[in-house]
Design a protein around this nucleic acid. Sequence first.
DNA 1: GCCCGACGTGTCAATTCTGAAATGTCGAAC
DNA 2: GTTCGACATTTCAGAATTGACACGTCGGGC
Lengths: 193, 193
Amino acid sequence: MSLRHALLGLLREGPKSGYDLLQMFKRSLHQTWPATQSQVYTELTKLADAGLLVVTAHGPRGRKEYTLTDAGLEELRRWMLETEPDRYPRSEALLRVFLLGALTRDEARDYLAWLGQKAAEDEVALTAFEDSIDWDHEDDLQLYGHMVVDFGKRLWVMSQEWADWAVAQIPAQAADDDPAAESGPPAKAAPPS
Amino acid sequence: MSLRHALLGLLREGPKSGYDLLQMFKRSLHQTWPATQSQVYTELTKLADAGLLVVTAHGPRGRKEYTLTDAGLEELRRWMLETEPDRYPRSEALLRVFLLGALTRDEARDYLAWLGQKAAEDEVALTAFEDSIDWDHEDDLQLYGHMVVDFGKRLWVMSQEWADWAVAQIPAQAADDDPAAESGPPAKAAPPS
DNA sequence: GCCCGACGTGTCAATTCTGAAATGTCGAAC
DNA sequence: GTTCGACATTTCAGAATTGACACGTCGGGC
């Protein structure tokens, strides 16, 4: 599981509480690796039981600050260096593209256009985020964080270009195109041309 | 869950067995939405229980061919039109970039270079796949399938450019850079300013 | 006639992930 | 002095996912 190692990694720059980590996920990692509350708190407990973390401070509202142990750092490095990452991101948005045949062509076009539009919005938001930060590339977390942000920007730019292209790929006319309206045997629609 | 709807979608073009569907996932959908054997067979049974599919033929080795019912098609359309897709692909490869601070800079550079190289290989493979098919854009499955393939190609091209850039972002010198080499008690490093 | 690779399905335990509910406290603003 | 939003944790049921095991059959090549 990757969440475990993400937590170890985030704790590298100093002690943090579950709440802190949750905020970090929400703010900086959400588009890459989302995490829920229950997941983070549960995992933190397990990591502490395994000796990869220790509680080093108790704060106001039952707040517990976890600190990375040597064993934790070692485990993180082992994972990074000795296990192979899954290189293929699972994309529900793209899966739906594959299944677009279940919709009319107008509906399919709408979906693709919507994807393009959302990509544009995401690009704007990410750019604003990037501009709002005074990147200090001496700091590892910022150096690598910036790389992830940059990847995101490129992804959204690419997605827009792709969506524009894809919309144009769908033939215009769509006479008896509704796949829900079945009449008789599933005869293929007459090829336009 | 999306797997359920992926199966419904694939069955739109005709009756298929679990084995057939598994092959389709392996061949065309693996990079977008992987599925295991147990998942497919289990889900098929559940979908049939729910009346979204029916078994319409029995073949040689206990082979069962499932056919999409009207209720199944309706459910697929409902999902496509009325539920919002998760637009953010979860990328373990990118998560690791975020955590690269746990490695030395040389190791980090190696990882980024490796990502770029794998992206290049994936691009080659996808292009070969694309060229091997005589795309018939009258066929919905091929039209939309081709869009997914094209997205993949763009993704790998973009990933290579990004990786090249990212490699160059890492400062060269790396004197006391090994985060595993700890000297003395786990005293926290002095917070920079 | 036999062997093997592809065909074909089913089930199980363990892990991971989602989503919600329950509970309570601190601090600032009004 | 009260109220409210942010802080903070724990727990749980249910769903999704993984990975392995177990079982059996058809067809072509030797």
